[in-house]
């Protein structure tokens, strides 16, 4: 790692202030992706601003509108244990990485990184969640912006994610054998107003909604409603763990299984 200083503010406003001063700063949440990146010397911040001690952005509660509100600094383990009101989301969190990673990694860190194989983006997008930052609220459909890119501005901190709780939902992840990230992950959420399906791991554009399947399921929420629907392998990630065609095929399989499990 290159040398850097590390600051551990205890208040969100102090973190925001540090990020906007003259020193070249980078935010660190759980660090489960950032620290390996720093070890490879792929980042060279002068200073890391840690959110680890900012307790005000940790925790889970239910909003006035019934949404499940998860603080941006909440670890995967805490979501797994505390998001019982939204079992599909808790189950997703319980299967990210491994137990030690889940004790450090946070939902805000995962979303800000927007790894194309991460699990959380699919939940946020399929749920139609709202990403709340220190500055504004961002709808899920506007948040993700391709591989490792989001709508966040420099120095903007995810303070909370508000998940409307669907009537039924499930997440199906098919793991890449080495990293155990999603080779394909499909999150299906059924609301009274319709069905949302988000796919992670597969597309060269990052997490995306499978609108044809959403339409097919809107009137008939059963795996059979997906018969005949498929995606093209074009535009899907193709690597030694699977071709684009394989990933496209897995999306169909995992979507069916998610619908059946929801």
């Amino acid at each position: 790692m290159y040398a850097f200083d590390i600051e551990r503010p205890t208040r969100l406003t102090d973190a925001v202030k540090l990020l906007s001063d003259a020193t070249d700063s980078q935010l660190i949440a759980g660090g489960q992706t950032l620290i390996p990146t720093l070890k490879q010397r792929l980042a060279m911040p002068e200073r890391l601003v840690s959110l680890g001690a900012v307790d005000e952005i940790k925790g889970i509660c239910t909003g006035d509108d019934g949404a499940l509100c998860i603080g941006g600094g909440t670890t995967h383990a805490d979501v797994a244990a505390g998001a019982g009101a939204y079992p599909a989301l808790a189950g997703l969190a319980a299967n990210i990485g491994d137990p030690a990673v889940r004790n450090r990694g946070t939902i805000g860190g995962s979303l800000a990184n927007n790894d194309p194989s991460a699990c959380y983006p699919s939940a946020v997008l399929a749920s139609g969640a709202t990403v709340v930052t220190n500055a504004r609220q961002i709808a899920a459909d506007d948040f993700f912006d391709g591989l490792f890119a989001t709508n966040l501005e420099e120095g903007e901190i995810i303070t909370e994610v508000r998940f409307p709780v669907p009537d039924a939902a499930a997440y199906m992840k098919f793991e890449q054998p080495a990293s155990r990230f999603a080779l394909v992950g499909v999150f299906v959420a059924r609301f009274s107003g319709g069905v949302r399906i988000a796919v992670t791991g597969a597309s060269e554009e990052g997490v995306f909604r499978w609108s044809e399947a959403e339409a097919a399921l809107a009137g008939n929420f059963s795996a059979g409603a997906l018969d005949g629907l498929s995606l093209s392998g074009d535009g899907m990630i193709s690597d030694l763990h699977g071709s684009g065609d394989y990933r496209a095929h897995l999306i169909s399989v995992m979507t069916r299984r998610a619908v059946a499990a929801a």
Binding site: P177, A178, S179, F181, D239, L240, H241
Partner: peptide, 11 residues
């Protein structure tokens, strides 16, 4: 090398 870490070399 395409499999230079445990992210791609499946142990």
């Amino acid at each position: 090398l395409l499999t230079g870490s445990y992210m791609d070399y499946a142990m």
